[in-house]
């Protein structure tokens, strides 16, 4: 008969290491793994779409500059946050975020609903010199964003990478047709990878985010991204009673 002795583990570092990892990972698995299978935690809302090529590059810059170190993108369901930032964030709203930008470490304000709250002009000036717009701010200056041209040569490859992890950017006609069905033709066009560069330039020209149409700067991309944050879901169409069921 198998005779287990605790001494085996205590006297064998390798075995102890494995046993410790197994014990710890049980906690992780129990807490995390079910979330991949529970369908009823992601709210069913219309309007959430993957980022356009320009917004996606803006998001890359957001991550590159480490904005997430001070800014979260998750409004929690608390009264003070609801009053200051707006409606609490839904899981559905970050379903295409890889990686997500949740968090509770806030040196600066939460940005989950900063989209369309301020003008492009404000964002540009604020990024160049935050103190000029908000005197008590401790945010660093990012003046190079305006003077650095956006490198969009690899934007198609970046979207392909996101497609690999499940973001519905389209490569084939079939995928494009599916996006037309899911998001409408206007959005589907912006998600088509073969047209990524063309779409990126077109959006930068039309949006004129940095106030200069002659080129596409990193500022264009970042402001385009900031201006779409939290604007995809029209909350006037939904009852909060519905969202309550998902937690």
């Amino acid at each position: 008969m198998f005779n287990f002795k605790h001494e085996w583990i205590e006297k064998n570092v390798g075995l102890m290491l494995i046993a410790t990892m197994v014990a710890i990972s049980i906690g992780g698995l129990v807490e995390i793994a079910p979330l991949f299978f529970i369908k009823e935690t992601v709210e069913k809302v219309d309007g959430v779409r993957p980022y356009t090529p320009l917004e996606s590059r803006g998001r890359d810059i957001y991550v590159r500059e480490g904005c997430y170190l001070c800014h979260s993108q998750m409004i929690r369901p608390f009264r003070d946050e609801a009053l200051r930032y707006g409606h609490y964030s839904l899981s559905a709203e970050s379903r295409y975020d890889h990686p997500f930008q949740w968090g509770s470490k806030r040196t600066g304000p939460d940005l989950a609903r900063v989209g369309m709250k301020y003008s492009n002009d404000w964002h540009v000036q604020h990024l160049i010199d935050p103190k000029s717009m908000v005197p008590p701010s401790v945010m660093p200056r990012y003046p190079w964003l305006l003077t650095t041209a956006l490198d969009y040569s690899d934007v198609a490859e970046r979207l392909k990478a996101l497609r690999q992890v499940g973001v519905p950017y389209s490569l084939t006609q079939g995928e494009y047709d599916r996006n037309v069905k899911d998001f409408g033709a206007d959005v589907a066009r912006t998600l088509h990878i073969p047209d990524a560069q063309k779409n990126l330039i077109a959006q930068a020209q039309a949006g004129n985010f940095d106030g200069d149409r002659s080129n596409v700067s990193e500022m264009d991309a970042l402001v385009a991204y900031l201006q779409v944050l939290g604007t995809m879901v029209d909350f006037s169409k939904y009852d909060n009673d519905e969202f309550v069921k998902f937690r």
């Binding site: 299978f37 529970i38 929690r76 369901p77 609801a82 009852d239 909060n240």
Partner: peptide, 30 residues
């Protein structure tokens, strides 16, 4: 695909003035 919701409830009045008592959640508590 679901989860145990527990017996606890939160009572609130929604935007339309209707009283609701769903299972406890931070959203209902808000």
């Amino acid at each position: 695909k679901h989860f145990t919701t527990g017996f606890g409830t939160v009572t609130y009045v929604n935007d339309k003035g209707v009283e609701k008592s769903p299972h406890w959640s931070t959203r209902a508590q808000l």
